[in-house]
Every structure is written in C-alpha cells, then in structure tokens.
Amino acid sequence: MSETSTRAWLLSDTPGSRAQARWGRRYQLWLAFRRNWLAVAGLAIVLLMLAMALAAPLLATQDPGVQNLANRLAPPSAAHWLGTDELGRDTWSRLVHGGRVTLGMVVAVVILVAPLGLVVGCVAGYAGGLWDRVLMRVTDVFLAFPRLILALAFVAAMKPGVESAVIAIALTAWPPYARLARAETLTIRNTDYIAAVRMTGASPWRIIWKHVAPMCLPSLTVRVTLDMSSIILTAAGLGFLGLGAQPPIPEWGTMIATARRFILEQWWVPVIPGIAIFLASLAFNLLGDGLRDVLDPKQR
C-alpha cells in the first residue's frame, strides 16, 4: 500500500472493519499530537533513552564494572567520552547501563501501580457504598504518608536493593491513581451510556472492565507520564541515600550519590548522571503535557 492510500485508509469516514476504525482513531490522535513539537521532542528523547538502555551492551565502550584506579576522575576524552568516576570506571558505559536500571525501575513501578490504581479506583467508584468506603480509606492511609518517608521506612525494613526500591515506590505511588480513577468513574457511572450497558444485563465486572476502565485510561495515562519524572527522582533519591540500587550496580541516583564529594573539583562526575535524570524527567513531562492536550476527554 502506498503512503497516500494508507493515509486515506486511516482517515476514512466510513471504515470497513473494527481494526480500521481503531487505527483511524489512533491516527487522528497522532495527528493532533504531532502538532505539539515540544511533546514530540519529549517522545523522541524518551524513545531514544529507552533504546539506549536496551542497547546498552552494544553502546557501552567498556565494562561498566571494570575499575582502573590509575585513571580515576578523568575528564572527558577520546578514550572515556564522559570521563571516569572515583574508581576509574568509564562514566559513559555506566550511564547507558544505569539507564537500564533507572528506567527499568520506572517501568516496573508503572506496571505495578497503574493497573492497581485503576482497579481500586474503578471498583470503589462503580460499586460505591461499603466497597468505596473501605477502598478509599485504605487509599487515604497510604496517601497520608509522605512518599519518600514511607518508601524509606519500607526499604529500611527490607534489604536495600532495586527490587525493594521498586516495591517501595509502587506502594507509595498508587493512591493518586486510585483517586483519579475513582473520580472519573463517579462521573462515568451516571451517564446514559453506562445505563444502556446495564440494560444489556452485563455483570458489574464486565461493565467496569469493558466500559468504565477504558474511559479512565486516557487521564490515567497522562497522569502516569507526568508522574514518571517524580518516580525517577524518587528512585534516584533512594539510590542517593544508599537504599536503592547497591554498588557496583550503575544507577543514576547512586552515581550522583557516590560522586557528590567531587562536585567542586571534578564537577562532571556527579553532573553527568544529573543531566541524564534531568533530561529523562523533562522528556516525560513534555510527553505527558502533550498527551493531556490530545487525550483529555474534557477538551474533546
């Protein structure tokens, strides 16, 4: 199929199949998204970083764990593109490998948190009554703790490491999603289209799953994307405090933490992972803003 006919197929007002209708809608969203160049830039950076993390073994010039004490804290050079750290390890290689850990943690948190928040919120909002009260009070309990403190307490109780950091962040990150999903569900459940679905005799689970949850997804997606940056920062913060990834695993937050002593003399050592964190957070924020403009049901 040539490019123009693909476009015509996607933009057709009279799609011939479910798939065509679905892809047509997605294409319309993409066209709207594409108009916002900042969001496209955010998306590009996110994709680039993810690709870098995935291809880390290919991109790294050296083993990120190999020490060379003779060449510690070296400035960027041809041999070490971004210099070396306090143990003479290649910063560039540690950065791309660290991307795997940091971004991997973010992805893991999102995979844990978004479905949990969605289910809790939709069930509480749709069922109402006792369900709502119990689920929302539990949510409130988690919401009442400062995020980092709760994560700290949790990691301290378990053994520090990537897995417990992920669980700790997930534990503190889901309540806002549950709140958001519940708020959306409350407005959706009183609409006529949900009444019409109830009139088909569908079970409450089916209604929540097939009809309510898809309507909550857009705002949840936006919220998740906007939250990514704070998840990165929390992960980095835990790493910085020594409660996240443990050395010698390269992780951006840990990298800053161990190199913070050199901020005055060899500033590039802590600053480079800082820039990576900053870029990733910014990119996710730009992407989230762009998605909100496109997906927000109140604007369409």
Partner: peptide
C-alpha cells in the same frame, strides 16, 4: 425481555466504541 431507548443520543452511546461494538455487546452478554 425489556429494553430502553434514552433521550439524549449523544450521551447514550459509548464515545469510545464503534457502532459494531455497541451492537455486539448485548449479543455477547446474552
């Protein structure tokens, strides 16, 4: 046995579902 048609045709159809999907829902449920 009992079905209903609502007042507002803008509000009674799921905005994210195609006509095909809307019509197949009762068939799947029953």
């Amino acid at each position: 046995r009992v079905q209903m048609v609502f007042q507002d045709p803008y509000g009674s159809l799921h905005p994210r579902q195609t006509v095909d999907r809307i019509l197949s829902e009762p068939l799947e449920v029953h």
